[in-house]
């Protein structure tokens, strides 16, 4: 489900990077200093372990195919939401930089899609809620919680991928078709990942329950319980902000708002003059998102001129390569 840079527009990528920066700061601040010093080795090593485990194939009975471990939900269950989120963000950074899996601009999207939904939504709202049910045995609760949490997180992640891709406008896929394509596939993937996560969690509960974050905390008072209401508000606000930025802004009125209307009427002549200004012409050329239009509709007017341009571009590339070779010889001296 990793998104690459090519399918992301700078606006969507930049917005998600900004949201990720906020989330990282929040996650770091939520961990108390003692916990950081005592658990950083555990966080790093567990993250590395989950990263490597993602490469293991798990045979799915009766299908001949195999599944993989997700990572986000398992990290949240092992490390808790904040440390789990940070570990997941680190894994995604390593994947983007060293494995060309994801991208630097798409980093924010990937952290939100694979990290936020698993650690900050599915873990506290699904997994931990299920653990509080009194009538079920602990093992059943762990299994149901891990499967349900992974399923919901993947569905949310797939939905976010759809929205981010459609808003970026780099593909022609219509929203409805894309959504119908993404959600059922990720329902199956989520189920497999959920069952694998549940198998691991259930085994750890039987063998070494203190490795599970919730079991570790059982019996000890939660030092952060007083901050819970503030945290809930922050998370809700963050989700609402993301939703507003990512979805509602797409429905923003194409008509001018009050301020634009006034400027248009009061200084029409001034604006007309500005339209020919060289700085405005430059800005028009460099505009990444002219008038909030996510979808680029710059269809080439004539293929002939475009073709000539392409030949010219390739020639320029060859020239650059020649200059590079020359520079290499000079710099080596």
């Amino acid at each position: 489900m990793h998104m690459g840079d090519a399918l992301i527009s700078p606006l969507v990528g930049g917005t998600m990077l900004a949201a990720t920066a906020g989330l990282l700061t929040k996650a770091v601040k939520s961990l108390d200093r003692d916990a950081v010093e005592h658990r950083i080795a555990y966080m790093g090593v567990t993250g590395a372990f989950v990263f490597a485990s993602q490469m293991i194939n798990f045979a799915i009975p009766g299908t001949g195919s195999s599944g993989h471990i997700g990572g986000g939900m398992l990290l949240a269950i092992l490390l808790g939401p904040h440390a789990g989120f940070l570990a997941m963000a680190s894994i995604l950074l390593i994947q983007a930089l060293f494995f060309a899996d994801g991208g630097l601009l798409a980093y924010g999207c990937n952290v939100i899609n694979l990290g936020l939904f698993t650690t900050y939504l599915a873990y506290p709202l699904i997994y931990q809620r299920i653990l509080k049910i009194k009538r079920l045995s602990m093992r059943t609760k762990l299994i149901v919680g891990a499967v349900a949490g992974t399923l919901v997180a993947l569905q949310l992640g797939a939905f976010a991928v759809t929205i981010e891709t459609v808003l970026s406008g780099r593909t022609e896929l219509p929203f409805g078709t894309f959504l119908l394509f993404m959600q059922p596939i990720h329902l199956a993937i989520g189920l497999v990942e959920g069952v694998i996560t549940a198998a691991v969690v259930s085994y750890l509960y039987a063998q070494k329950p203190e490795l599970l974050y919730d079991q570790l905390k059982t019996g000890s008072p939660d030092p952060q319980s007083s901050k819970k209401s503030t945290k809930a508000v922050v998370i809700v606000l963050l989700v609402v902000t993301l939703f507003t930025g990512a979805v509602l802004s797409n429905f923003a009125s194409a008509s001018p708002d009050g301020l634009e209307w006034s400027i248009e009427n009061v200084s029409a002549a001034f604006l007309a003059a500005m339209g020919e200004h060289p700085i405005l012409a430059l800005q028009e050329k460099l505009a990444w998102m002219p008038d909030y239009g996510f979808k680029s509709d710059q269809v080439p007017e004539a293929f002939g001129t475009s073709f000539a341009g392409i030949i010219g571009s390739i020639a320029t590339l060859l020239l650059v390569m020649g200059i590079g070779r020359f520079a290499k010889k000079r710099l080596a001296k």
């Binding site: 990282l24 950083i40 993250g47 940070l86 570990a87 060293f98």
Partner: peptide
């Protein structure tokens, strides 16, 4: 913390 985690994990 993230950069330390990144280095450790790497």
């Amino acid at each position: 913390l993230m950069t330390t985690l990144f280095l450790l994990m790497f």
